[in-house]
Design a protein around this nucleic acid. Sequence first.
DNA 1: CGCCAAGGTGACGTTAAGGTAAACCGTGAC
DNA 2: GTCACGGTTTACCTTAACGTCACCTTGGCG
Lengths: 136, 136
Amino acid sequence: MSPAREDLLSIRQMCALFDVTPRTLRFYEAKELLAPLRRGTARLYGYRDRARLKLILRGKRFGFSLEDIRQLLDMYDRNPGQQEAQLARTYALAAERLAQMERQRAELDEAIAELKAEMDWGATALAALRSAAAAE
Amino acid sequence: MSPAREDLLSIRQMCALFDVTPRTLRFYEAKELLAPLRRGTARLYGYRDRARLKLILRGKRFGFSLEDIRQLLDMYDRNPGQQEAQLARTYALAAERLAQMERQRAELDEAIAELKAEMDWGATALAALRSAAAAE
DNA sequence: CGCCAAGGTGACGTTAAGGTAAACCGTGAC
DNA sequence: GTCACGGTTTACCTTAACGTCACCTTGGCG
């Protein structure tokens, strides 16, 4: 069950909800990706923090660095009015990242193909050794 | 022009031949991946070193760590007689690595697909904003 | 009052594969 | 002699994203 919009979560609850460690949340906060409320010294995570964390984790899945993510997030809440320009910028960054990922995939494909070729060679050599051994 | 079998290369020549830095060659030596001859204190790289370095760089392209590569290389020249067993072992490691690479590729594909979906969404939103702006 | 669990801070460690800097050596040329 | 060049060693630095530890605080409960 996801928390209601106004719920404030403790760090533990937050961790359970997103499957991260407390260290991670404090780390993100140190990097200015999150800014939970405080009750005394204790952190309280609200709706906004949950939304941000969701974006952070998604960004990570896409291979963005935390620094990249911070900049995007910052852009959105430093001047929440330039929606079109911001969306366009985000889109451009995403396109760039997509191109990177596709290059990476191409390299990976190449390496996979090359490795498979080596393995075919190895399989042949292995078979030859074994039939030679059997023939003795 | 590749060097003749008996040629001994200086570290510079080696670097030029394989497009690596001296630091890299010394680093590999510290990690016991290479063991060039010495004339005085200077390193001299022979045929064997060139063959090993070629394997090292190939291994890296496949995403093996230097430590993995060292173990494979070691296996081959610590007891150069168990050819079948060694080849089989190498083959097994390659298969494992291939599986890893294919998993990685699948994840990458998924991330690419997800990112593309986000981008479609973004493109739509962007178009909506623009036509709204045009309508004013 | 005493204690525990949950929370906090600060500091240092980890990993891989080198980069970078400082200081030294040997030798062939001039 | 000394200059430059190519080489050597040792040692510390880098990056990312946390993990781990030691040592406080604080709130609640019996």
